[in-house]
Amino acid sequence: MSIRNGLVALAALAFAFPALAMTPALTVISEGPAPQRRAVQLIVRSERASRDFQIQVTAPGTPPILPGQTAPAIYVLDGGYDIAGPTGWLLGGAGAIAPAYVITIGYPPGGPFTRERDLLFAPGTRPDGTVAKGGGGAAFRAFLLEELKPFMETRYPLDPKSAVLFGHSLSGIFTANMLADRPEAFSGYLIASPSLWADPSVIDRLRTVSARAPGRKVFVAWGAKEEPYMTDGGQKVSAALSSDPARLTLRTKAFENEQHISYYPLVMSAAFPFLLPRAAPIRHPSPIALTRAQTERYFGTYALSDGRKVTIGEDEDGMLLEVEGAPAANIHAEALDRFYIHGVDARITFDAGPGPPAALVFYVNGAEARAVRK
Rank of each mutant, 00 (worst) to 15 (best):
N5W: 12
G6L: 11
G6S: 12
F15N: 13
L20D: 10
L26P: 14
V28W: 09
V28C: 11
V28K: 09
I29K: 12
A34E: 01
P35G: 10
Q41Y: 08
S46V: 01
Q56K: 12
Q56T: 15
V57F: 03
P63C: 01
T70R: 15
L77E: 15
I83C: 06
G85P: 01
P86C: 10
L90C: 11
G92S: 07
A94C: 08
G95W: 07
A96Y: 11
A98M: 11
A98G: 00
A100I: 08
Y101I: 02
T104M: 02
G106M: 04
P108W: 02
P112F: 05
T114A: 14
A122L: 05
P123V: 02
R126Q: 06
P127G: 03
P127A: 06
A132G: 04
A139G: 01
F143E: 02
L145C: 01
E146M: 08
L148D: 02
P157W: 09
S169A: 12
L170T: 07
L170Q: 11
F174V: 04
L179V: 04
L179W: 06
A180L: 10
D181I: 10
A185D: 06
S193E: 02
S195E: 01
S195T: 06
S195Q: 04
L196N: 04
A198P: 10
F219M: 03
V220K: 00
A221S: 14
W222Q: 01
A224D: 04
P228V: 00
M230E: 03
M230I: 14
G233C: 00
V237E: 06
A240W: 09
L241R: 00
T252W: 04
N257G: 02
E258N: 09
E258L: 03
Q259K: 13
H260F: 02
I261D: 12
S262T: 15
M268T: 01
A271C: 05
A271T: 02
L276N: 03
P277I: 05
R278D: 04
A280L: 08
P281S: 09
R283F: 01
P285G: 03
P287S: 10
I288Q: 00
T291Y: 00
R292K: 13
R292S: 12
T295N: 10
T295D: 07
E296I: 12
F299V: 04
T301L: 11
Y302E: 05
T311I: 15
I312E: 01
I312M: 12
G313Q: 04
E314C: 00
L320Q: 12
E322M: 07
E324V: 07
G325K: 02
A329D: 05
N330C: 02
H332S: 14
F350H: 05
G353C: 08
A359S: 15
E368F: 14
